[in-house]
Nucleic acid binder design. Structure first.
Lengths: 341, 341
DNA sequence: TTGAAAGCGCTAACAC
DNA sequence: GTGTTAGCGCTTTCAA
């Protein structure tokens, strides 16, 4: 059905090689150029990228495996990546593995069959087993947001400085005199969870505060999890005077729990949230929060991948660490005795 | 580098065809099966989907062109689609055109080069010009959420009954005695905007109410647009007693404007919103709203596309219209004189 | 500048 | 059941 280069060769009376050269930016006699262009129009010729890929051994496709597509943090990163990659004529095929390691592994294999030139992964499986096949295939792998210990040196990565981010928040709070600081973390064992916990503990230590297990909750990075965590935190007899919540959804959940529980922010409780996504600003405009640079994460990832693709030989794996920012709002105030009433 | 079928043929001493048959589910002698499997393991053989595509003239890729990836309504549809498509071994490559018709056209061409087997499009360009090339290429096209008049009969589609949806909302309101009903629409000329407007007008007519231009606002389907629209609506001297907002983001914006403006819902104003997305339920749990079945939209789309792919011959284009649901909340009450104070 | 020809990795007749 | 072979649409030497 569809016209091929052969068709346009016949139509123009030229050889295949000439047509090919024309499409690849080679020099062709003016006259022949016109001929070719006319034939292309006439026959609705569309180059077949698959055939080309077979020959060049480059699919110009990057596989992207993520835990969840319906997550604003993730989609904003992907948008930024796609922008850059598509400009370089790379397509991305996104696989949402629903935070299921089994699906994740299948997704990687699926993409490998399709001969993606590279793989970008926001890993669900912290062991990195799902990437074994990709490692074998020797294509560049880029981890985003979450590092995998066992793969150190074998992949590149773009992450934020999680420990520092948590430290920023907690130091802000201790600086204001708070000593009982609640922490709402994501699922245990997740890379970001651990890092943020470390940052929290370090900052407390700095301030000479002995951490209390009771102030630490795991909220699964979900709205509901954050809601529950904060409810239980507020139900303590000796409850925290300040709170640091470590992702977007949980911060939302936390605020809802506080609103519903009649806890005033910052009068009764100082709160620092996480991730300034669009919706957020609108809903809780005055929240103090730690902002991750999603745009930069996406851009850096795309550029790093492009780099990796162009320097296949060198084992040039890098870890890019982006820093976060503390956005001042009005949800934090200095600790005073009365505040805890 | 990567092993090919030839390699595993050599390794096993079998013929190419046998290997191929093995991979395509043909019957192979038990002994040879074992041989092949061993060789696959040993050589890390991974089938090359591109070569296969070249031969079979099927890429098993569906292109998806959407206006915006960072939109929860859209991503929830895509997730549902991907689930089904991937089970049938189809990949989707998603292109986010940022609501820009030029990008949209480029995206379609980009996908056509890659020889996608089908195209799913939530159209930005209402003229449908961007799909011309795809029509020429004679691949199945499926419109989602937005119909394109000029393409009637040449594409399939999955949409909701927009007019009915708006009617449901407005009838609810008129049934409760409201006669001054504000309407916040998306961008003018968009398919859904028009349909929803029609539904609104029809329902008013039914109730014997003469529509007032002043009660109709265009909010661009954005949070900000909704916010502005509602602010201006509330600033009217003779303001509406009820409000229907026609998408998720704008409903959010509307609620924020109302909260900030000190307008009580439903005491001062009855409100019906749109799209029950996860976050929403948590933030405004008691909102009465029109719910679109995103999951079904995604599933129907995937299944319809699969169908189209399998019945290439028949001109079996269909439009599937899904219905919406009115979810009762507490943001609506009967009109009383005092209410408008 | 142009053309002929080989081959990328696979499938699908067809013959054995 | 299995092997031989001819392409799929393109790129890329190599000669002309």
């Amino acid at each position: 059905m569809a016209a091929t280069m052969k068709d346009i060769a016949r139509e123009t009376g030229l050889g295949l090689a000439t047509i090919s050269k024309y499409f690849n930016g080679g020099t062709v006699k003016e006259n022949n150029r016109l001929l070719i262009e006319a034939a292309v129009k006439k026959l609705h010729y569309v180059p077949n990228e698959m055939a080309r890929s077979l020959k060049t051994k480059q699919s110009r496709v990057i596989g992207v495996v993520i835990p969840e597509l319906s997550n604003a943090f993730i989609t904003s990163i992907i948008s930024a990546m796609e922008d850059i990659l598509r400009k370089k004529d790379y397509a991305i095929v996104v696989c949402d593995c629903r935070s299921d390691p089994r699906h994740e592994k299948e997704a990687v294999e699926f993409l490998l069959h399709r001969r993606v030139d590279g793989l970008i992964n926001m890993a669900t499986d912290p062991t990195g087993r799902h990437l074994k096949a990709a490692l074998d295939a020797d294509i560049p792998i880029l981890l985003v947001d979450r590092l995998i210990d066992s793969l150190r040196g074998r992949t590149s990565a773009v992450v934020i400085d999680n420990a520092h981010a948590a430290g920023q928040a907690v130091r802000k709070l201790t600086g204001l005199g708070h000593r009982k600081i609640g922490l709402v973390l994501g699922s245990p064992h997740l890379y970001t969870t651990n890092c943020r916990l470390t940052g929290y503990l370090d900052a407390l230590k700095e301030a000479g505060i002995v951490p209390s297990e009771g102030f630490i909750r795991y909220g699964d990075y979900t709205l509901d999890g954050g809601y529950q965590a904060v409810q239980s935190l507020m139900a303590m007899e000796d409850r925290p005077t300040a709170l640091f919540v470590t992702n977007f959804e949980m911060t939302l959940g936390a605020m809802l729990a506080l609103n519903q529980g009649g806890v005033r922010v910052p009068e009764d409780l100082s709160v620092i949230g996480f991730d300034k996504l669009e919706l957020f600003g609108a809903i809780f405009p005055d929240l103090t929060l730690i902002r991750q640079p999603q745009l930069s994460i996406g851009r850096e990832s795309a550029n790093l991948m492009l780099d990796l693709l162009n320097n296949r030989d060198s084992a040039s794996h890098r870890i890019v660490t982006l820093s976060t920012e503390l956005t001042e709002g009005k949800s934090v105030r200095a600790f005073t005795e009365q505040a805890t009433v």
